[in-house]
Amino acid sequence: MGGSRRANLRLLLFCAPALIVYFVFKLIPAVSGIGYAMTDWNGLSQDYSFVLFDNFIAVFSDTYFWRSVWFTLKYVAVMVVVANVIALLLAVAIESRRRAKGVYRTIFYMPNMISMVIGGYMWMFIFTQVLYYMADNWGLTFLDHSWIGDPHYSFIAIIIVASWSTVGYLMIIYMAALQGVPADLLEAAQLAGANSRQCFFRVTLPMILPAVTICIFWTLNSGFQVFDVIYALTGGGPGRATQSVAMNIYEEAFRGNIRYGYATAKSTILFVIVMVITLIQLKVMKSREAEL
């Protein structure tokens, strides 16, 4: 009895630093935010009044907000597929190599270590200067698009930059999972006459499903909160064509009318949307995992 209690206590102690930081910087602001969502605070004055659910009702007729929600949904859908497929491909390709695994792993992971804002500005330079230079001087006219100004192309640009920086992270998770696939299972499958594609889809993929769950969960979650790439790359423009929900909330809180309470109401709604979607995703994926 005493031993297990001590063990629990010790485990708790190990978690304490992370828990305390999470509690102070995430949980408390999140909960108190719901309180602010019911006020008309403008983020500046010292007094404000409670307006109860007025903010939430106003959100429902806010076309710009719902347009940004729609844009974010599109972004998340594309990112979940693109980033995970590329990450898995890279992981498999690198794992199947005999030599220099470490080198490739480092190279593909590197963009993840660069701050997204800096990466965004780097890519902005590429999209606004380098590509045009190539188009003008080397005759690569297929590059001559309005990469920032045309909403269609700027969406592609955003996906490129976002995948560039997240793929490395997902790749590492997939690689770890791939290393955990027992070699004897694969060997048995090969002996039974399975070709390499069958091996991958029938043996490897089911074995790494837990990693797929984590990666999709992570891309969903971070996708809904996307801010820095878009902020650095297009600033949400032209107009609001590439504005994500997070940017819409930021704009409401810090620019223009500075409606802090209203912005908090919006972020509460975003929180609910993200929670519902990730809960569904976890439930679906977990049940799949259990079958195997």
């Binding site: 909403p151 032209p238 064509a241 223009g256 009318n257």
Partner: peptide, 21 residues
């Protein structure tokens, strides 16, 4: 002018330039 309006003017002119409004 209210700063929300000033902000909106800039955004709408961007959209006007790319032809979406």
């Amino acid at each position: 002018l209210p700063s929300a309006v000033t902000d909106e003017q800039g955004r709408l002119l961007q959209e006007y330039y790319v032809g979406s409004v």
